[in-house]
Simulated scan of single mutants.
Amino acid sequence: MNFNSWWYMGLAIISLGILIFIYSKKRKSSFLLLFLVMVEFAFLIETVIYIFGGSYQYFPKIIKYNSYYDSNVGALVSNLLIVPALATLIGVFKLNWLWISFFTAFLTFTEWLFLRLNIYEHNWWKTGYTTFGLLFVFFPLGKVIYRQISKPLKGIKHSIFLFLCTAPILGCMHIIPIMWLSNRAYFLGWFKDYAHDTTAFASLYHVVVAIIFTILIKINWRHRGLKYLVMASITFVTTLILTKIGILKSYVWWDPWYYIFYHVIVLTMSGAISKRLSRGSSGRSI
């Protein structure tokens, strides 16, 4: 592990430490649901500014064979770990503006330091944008979201939060194997680098699948197994179509089956999350 990698690893360890601390103090699944929601908000923001907007680039030097996938690792440390973990800490413990300002200053300083160490680079982004977004939007949002998911949810609000909790699981299970195992790639011609193309398509794909999951969960099925059959069929047909028109290329035999398998697994998890959201904060585990 080189110099760059240690800094990103340090942030990851801090993030995990924060989540373990929250769990040790608040043994309720609501903190995990809040974390998932904040991860998805971070993913949606990054889809716009980082993937399609080209705002900045990370250099963790962990994935050697492709610089864009390597940059994605840095993005995951930020948007899957440290930023949502701090937002979860703020929301669960209802921390005031002093704490919000402190954590904003910490991440602002971290960004400044990473820039000086040349392990992170701005294109058109400014550190001030990060400060403003965290201080006035993202961190306060954590407190608002936690109040919402602590109550029993129904109707459209239940559907929205079910989507926000399910989408990040789908997104991670979709792109992480691609980055590390090169099991598939998407070719659309949107960007020069196939890895950028793949990341962009995957970022949209997981949103569409999460919407489908939400619809399937909300339907009252007479036979529970039917929704799994429908989801597996949709995944299988989508894979065939994308392959046929030349967008998808699979490089290992298990690739199509993995996406069917994990969709079925996450659909089960989504059902459990749905029940938990309906109960409110009374549940201790998902």
Score class of each variant (00 low, 15 high):
1 M>I: 14
2 N>T: 12
3 F>Y: 13
10 G>Q: 06
15 S>C: 01
16 L>E: 04
18 I>E: 06
20 I>Q: 12
22 I>C: 10
23 Y>Q: 14
24 S>Q: 15
24 S>T: 14
25 K>M: 10
26 K>Q: 14
27 R>F: 12
28 K>M: 10
31 F>H: 15
32 L>E: 08
32 L>A: 11
34 L>V: 03
35 F>Q: 02
37 V>T: 04
38 M>Q: 00
38 M>N: 04
39 V>K: 02
40 E>T: 04
41 F>N: 03
44 L>Q: 01
46 E>Y: 02
48 V>M: 07
49 I>A: 05
51 I>L: 13
51 I>A: 05
51 I>K: 04
52 F>I: 07
54 G>F: 09
63 I>Q: 00
70 D>E: 08
73 V>K: 03
82 I>S: 02
85 A>P: 00
85 A>N: 00
86 L>T: 03
86 L>M: 08
92 V>D: 00
94 K>Q: 14
95 L>N: 03
96 N>F: 11
98 L>D: 00
101 S>P: 01
105 A>K: 07
110 T>G: 00
117 L>K: 15
118 N>W: 05
118 N>A: 13
119 I>P: 02
120 Y>W: 13
124 W>L: 08
126 K>R: 15
132 F>A: 15
133 G>T: 03
133 G>E: 04
133 G>S: 09
134 L>Q: 03
138 F>P: 02
139 F>E: 01
140 P>E: 09
141 L>T: 13
142 G>R: 01
143 K>N: 10
145 I>H: 01
146 Y>L: 02
148 Q>E: 12
152 P>E: 09
153 L>C: 13
157 K>Y: 10
159 S>M: 14
163 F>Y: 14
166 T>Y: 04
167 A>G: 03
195 A>S: 15
196 H>G: 00
198 T>W: 06
201 F>H: 10
206 H>F: 12
207 V>S: 11
210 A>T: 07
213 F>M: 12
221 W>V: 06
226 L>C: 06
230 V>Y: 02
233 S>Y: 11
234 I>W: 07
235 T>H: 09
240 L>G: 00
244 K>D: 14
245 I>T: 05
246 G>E: 10
246 G>T: 07
248 L>R: 04
253 W>D: 13
256 P>A: 10
257 W>I: 13
260 I>S: 05
260 I>Q: 10
261 F>W: 14
262 Y>H: 15
265 I>Y: 07
267 L>A: 09
273 I>M: 15
276 R>G: 03
278 S>V: 02
278 S>T: 11
280 G>D: 06
280 G>E: 08
280 G>H: 08
282 S>R: 13
